[in-house]
């Protein structure tokens, strides 16, 4: 019975397509993948609940190899981690020249 209820909730959630908002900023050249977005400009994006760092990059069409650091709420965030609603995300390429 419990299993059926959980399955029903999960299916219901899936059918409703529950999404969450993230606030994203990209820096130092990654903006070239996002027409209309400028360096450091914050924008909101709707993603499905459970979206990972890697999933966000797919949605933004930013090649994984170009992203050196992903931060969520000011902390390192791995491509395999899942976001929470309202997370503030920052993406950087390697700004490593000197």
């Amino acid at each position: 019975m419990l299993f059926k209820l959980c399955a029903k909730l999960t299916v219901g959630k899936f059918l409703r397509g529950d999404s969450m908002k993230l606030e994203v900023r990209v820096f130092s050249g990654l903006e070239k993948y996002l027409p209309g977005i400028t360096f450091g400009q914050a924008f909101e994006i709707d993603v499905p609940e459970g979206t990972t760092g890697r999933g966000l990059l797919v949605k933004l069409a930013i090649p994984e190899s170009q992203v050196f650091s992903m931060l969520a709420n000011g902390r390192h965030f791995s491509f395999d981690q899942k976001f929470h609603p309202g997370d503030r995300v920052a993406l950087f390429p390697p700004v490593g020249g000197g």
Binding site: S65, Q66, H76, P93, P94, G97
Partner: peptide
């Protein structure tokens, strides 16, 4: 390392490729 955990991908942009 709190900020930049891994070495950059060899495919990532560098000054030698994109200029400075």
């Amino acid at each position: 390392r709190c900020l930049f955990r891994e070495d950059p991908s060899p495919d990532a942009s560098s000054c030698a490729e994109v200029g400075i």
